[in-house]
Every structure is written in structure tokens, then in C-alpha cells.
């Protein structure tokens, strides 16, 4: 299968390891990887800020770049939800609505693609650490993606998953919300991190680098003993 990776802007610039891990995982499974040039922003920041025209400008380019793909995989529940759930709404009553629906149907968040499309849960990975999992809100509530990441983690050698009480509570990131309302965003993050710390886990794992950026940003600033890692990075370890 030819898998088209959609690597969002901040993953490209700040978390390249996530993309690299995905390439290695899919190649190991025998698939061919394609990364289109000129598609790094799904348009979510503009969309969530209410600027739907500007979001469409971004989205239209993505739509054009990805329309011929066999399957599109995104290492983020948030960007995944944007393409999968919100593109059809964004392009409603425009000529591109059909293309948006088609793209939505073949676009998948990384963990759900592995489990639900490829039927893979065991990648032979080894990660001998105690971890806790953070459900990114978009992955959880827009994409209903509660089980796949846990199914994948369950097969990782040496990994111990300890669920935190606030697994489904928002980390406080919320895109531009995090800088428009930094105090609220920080308070939310403190609640989240306190719950993660209670598990005595070494790592917080998530399918969303943006949530992890928020969590890591806070725990590092407060010098708390907690590291963050994207699910793809764990699955690529051997």
C-alpha cells in the first residue's frame, strides 16, 4: 500500500522524530511512504479562530495535494479530526465538498490506522518503562479513538501502562486558546499534570504532539519528573 503521510507544521519543525518513526514503522510493515510537498497546515488554527475563509485557503491546498492518495495518515488526532470531520463542513456549499468528503473517508489518525485499517497491534516494539496515556480531546471525542492506542501499547515489550484519573481531561492546549488565555490554559495543564504525576509514570504518552508540547512545557518549567513521548516514537523502538 502507498501511504501518504500528512506531517503537520509543528511536527515537522519541533517533533521530526514522530514523522521519522512513522516512516520506519510503515516501511517495516512493507508499505511505501509518500510525503507530498507543500502540505503542512490543515488550516485548523484559522478554522478554530473563526476565520473559515482563511482556513479554506489552507485546506484547499491540502485537498489538492492529497486527493490522489490511497490512504492519508496523520500523527495527530487534532489535525486528523480537522481533515476527517471538519473539512466536509468547511467546504459545505462549495464545489469542493465532494473532494473533501472523499479525502475525509480515506484519512486516518495514526493509531487508528494501524489497528483498524491495517489490523496491526504488535509491532515488536520494546520500551521498558512505566507510562501513562493522555487522550487528546479531538482523537477521543471527534474520532472516538479510545481503544487503538491502548491496544498498541498493550503489545509493547516491557511497557507498563498506568492509567491516570484525568486521562480524558483536556491538557489545556487548545491551539490559540493556549496563548489567548494563558492563565486558564496553564491551570488546566496543572490539573492534568498533577494527575499524570500521581501515577508515578516516567512518561506521558499521547497521539498528539501538540498536547505533549503543552504538558512538557509545563513540567519542564516546573521541573517535575515527567517526560513526554509520542506513541509512534515508542512503537518504533526495538
Amino acid at each position: 500500500m502507498i501511504i501518504t503521510l500528512f506531517i503537520p507544521c509543528f511536527v515537522d519543525l519541533m517533533h521530526p522524530q514522530v514523522g521519522i518513526s512513522m516512516v520506519r514503522i510503515f516501511e517495516k510493515l512493507g508499505h511505501k511512504i509518500v510525503v507530498p510537498e507543500g502540505a503542512a497546515c490543515c488550516g485548523q488554527p484559522a478554522f478554530n479562530s473563526g476565520y473559515w475563509n482563511e482556513a479554506r485557503t489552507s485546506a484547499a491546498k491540502v485537498l489538492a495535494q492529497l486527493q490522489d492518495a490511497e490512504a492519508v495518515v496523520i500523527p495527530s488526532g487534532s489535525c486528523g479530526a480537522m481533515v476527517k470531520n471538519f473539512y466536509p463542513e468547511l467546504f459545505a456549499n462549495t464545489p469542493q465538498v465532494e473532494a473533501a468528503r472523499k479525502l475525509a473517508a480515506k484519512t486516518h489518525e495514526f493509531s487508528s490506522f494501524l489497528v483498524n485499517q491495517l489490523g496491526v497491534t504488535d509491532l515488536g516494539a520494546k520500551f521498558p518503562h512505566r507510562v501513562t496515556f493522555h487522550d487528546g480531546c479531538h482523537g477521543l471525542r471527534e474520532l472516538n479513538n479510545k481503544r487503538p492506542p491502548r491496544q498498541l501499547l498493550a503489545m509493547v515489550r516491557g511497557l507498563e501502562l498506568v492509567e491516570m484519573g484525568a486521562a480524558e481531561t483536556c491538557c489545556g492546549f487548545g491551539g490559540t486558546f493556549s496563548t489567548k488565555f494563558p492563565e486558564i490554559s496553564t491551570a488546566m495543564s496543572e490539573v492534568k499534570c498533577a494527575s499524570a504525576l500521581e501515577t508515578k509514570a516516567e512518561y506521558v504518552v499521547s497521539c498528539d504532539s501538540s498536547c505533549l508540547m503543552q504538558i512538557k512545557g509545563l513540567v519542564n518549567k516546573q521541573q517535575k519528573p515527567l517526560k513526554t513521548i509520542h506513541l509512534a516514537e515508542i512503537l518504533a523502538q526495538s
Binding site: D12, L13, V18, I20, G217, K221
Partner: peptide, 16 residues
Amino acid sequence: TRELPPIAKQSFREWL
């Protein structure tokens, strides 16, 4: 209240 993640020495696309 939060640390900013650094820009990677090599971005994903540069790696690719």
C-alpha cells in the same frame, strides 16, 4: 508558565 520546544536541528522534511 511553559517552556518553548526548540526548533529541531533537522526538520522532518529536511530529514526526508
